[in-house]
Amino acid sequence: MTSAPLALPSLPTRNRSAAAQQALVYAEFVRVGFINTLAYRLRYYTGIVTYFIYVSVYYFIWKAIYAHSQRIEGFDFGQILTYIAVGWMIRSFYYNNIDQDLAEQVVEGKLAMDLIKPVNVQAMYLARALGESAFRLILLTLPTVIILFTVYPLRPPRSVVHFLAFFLSSSLSFFIVAGINFAVGTLAIRLKSILGLLRAKYFLLELFSGLLIPISFFPHAFQAAFAYMPFQYISYIPVLIYLGKLNGVFILRALGIQFFWVVALISLGDGMWRWSSRRITIQGG
């Protein structure tokens, strides 16, 4: 159909320095990720409905709960509603299927095609997912934000500075999720069918990232353990920044830890890939 106006121009790859050329290769993967998603754009229209349903369920649950209390764990109703809605909004952006893609490549024997490309496989997957997320930002996140703000009484960000920090923080969420997904996805190479595992990871991320309920609602032992895990930096921390529950130096500290997890998880994924790719069996192909 009318995909032409949205398609980015193909990038020329000759007469550049080696590093620039490398960057252009991955930029091309970003473009491919964007275009591929474009082919499935119809699904994203119903995706908007899906996100609206998610938020609506929790709207009614919290409404029933706040009928009897003013504040729970420092959240009033407007804050908890905003917390849930903004959490789902950024999820519509940072979410990706790198793990499932990898698992499918393994099962269908297409992984061979990834191996023959002279690129870093993890960087390629990350670049494609980035393209997909850029697409989601325009055609899923943006409409979802507009609808949710229209239907529900949501609060604006605490300030412009908070908003900018929130924006940076949720961009880092993308890399944390992508890092986790790639690392988990590499398990498919040794374990073959990992769909059950991926389902468990899906629910684990929903709960431990704070998407369903703020981390401060968890029992203290859990909160203490979560401090040493990357999950709460996916959703809980960015949304706390949005709400203004984190301020000044604490925002900087949170962004620093997020950045640490990005580096740690990408290194982990790189290690896992090296470890697993020594044992690849290609099925047919």
Binding site: L191, L204, L212
Partner: peptide, 29 residues
């Protein structure tokens, strides 16, 4: 077996929201 047990973990995690929620509130309507 891996599929079976990881699927079970997923189901149990699904109860997590209710469990955490009720650690803070006595009743839901």
């Amino acid at each position: 077996l891996i599929a079976f047990f990881s699927s079970m973990v997923a189901t149990v995690l699904g109860f997590g929201f209710v469990w955490v929620l009720f650690s803070k509130i006595p009743k839901l309507q």
